[in-house]
Simulated assay, not measured.
Amino acid sequence: MINFIGNETQTELTARLIAADREPHSVIICGEHGLGKRTLAKVLASQLLCERGDGTFCGQCRACRLIEQGQHPDVMTVQSSDTGNYKVEDIRAVVSDAVVSPNEARLKVYIIPDLDRSRQTLIQVQNILLKLIEEPPDHTVMILTARSKETFLATIISRTLHLTVEETEPAQTAAYLAEQGCDPQLSEEAVRRCGGNIGACLDYVSDEKVRKLADIAAAAVQALAENDEYELLKLFTMADQKRDSFIRLMTFMQRAVRDALRIHTGTQTPYVFSQEACKALAAKRSTKRLTAAFDILGDFSGRASANCLTSILVNALTAALIKS
């Protein structure tokens, strides 16, 4: 059975809609990398096609088993290229196929994940899908995922159900990691540094490169607290310059700055990214400056997502953070 932790509000909403024969024909699922957007898409497909027919899913019937295995003939996940871009002809093929009746289920479900990564064809893809979303066949459901709702055209946003995947509670995350047999010490570090993002926590405990990025982020926050521009630039240069690694580094730093902001404002923070670095930053910067740094990191993460070269971004990022 598909294992989706937390976010009961989202799954209960879709279950109620399906039970009332008001299932959405177009859905946008948003949330940062690792939170389970694709998993929620599979849960929704299971709710729609399960033989129970009441908006819940059993995980045992033929439809549920095939969806979990990725083999259901009426649940299609569109594949992007290695760079994350979707081919225009593949999206046109979806639109053409959508008018054809389902193979065996009552509905056909199309999942187009991580649309925000399709920077080269983002607008084209949405314009092609727009007619299908505006006037969907009765037997068609379209599920799109992205980090942010801002990825989508206003005309698509206005015609879709929006679901946001949230982090789980840290205790839930820790319990899940324990169930998976993860190393206890690494699991504790993962929850401190990745919060309730289960996918990110699993990456942390299994990938030394991810842990190295987290260490660089902690050191960079310490350098920022000391206003050491040279050290900050050196640390950014040390990090893996691949786009996904740069975005992950920005996410780690945002978590650390957020924790510093919580410390600065006296908010109870049981899981702190890095006690030493976050306390140092909280002591040296005002709420306004911490908020500005958080926003700058988000902005540069967005620039990297838009295919800007990270080797070019690091100089501007360093200057912006020191100035903030």
Rank of each mutant, 00 (worst) to 15 (best):
Q172G: 12
T173Y: 01
Y176T: 11
Y176C: 07
Y176P: 05
L177I: 08
G181L: 12
G181F: 09
D183E: 15
P184H: 14
P184D: 14
L186C: 13
E188Y: 07
A190F: 07
V191S: 02
C194T: 09
C194Y: 03
N197W: 08
I198Q: 02
G199D: 02
C201T: 07
Y204K: 04
V205E: 03
D207L: 12
E208S: 15
I216C: 00
I216T: 05
I216H: 00
A219I: 08
A220D: 04
V221Y: 07
V221R: 06
A223C: 07
A225K: 03
A225H: 05
A225Y: 05
N227I: 13
D228K: 14
L232S: 05
L235A: 06
A239K: 05
D240G: 12
Q241V: 09
D244G: 10
F246G: 02
L249E: 04
M250N: 01
R258E: 08
D259M: 08
R262V: 03
I263M: 07
I263D: 00
H264N: 15
G266I: 15
T267A: 09
T267E: 07
Y271E: 07
Y271S: 04
F273I: 04
E276R: 10
A277W: 00
A277Y: 01
C278G: 09
C278V: 10
K279G: 01
K279S: 13
L281T: 00
L281H: 00
K288W: 10
K288G: 10
A293S: 14
G298R: 01
G298K: 03
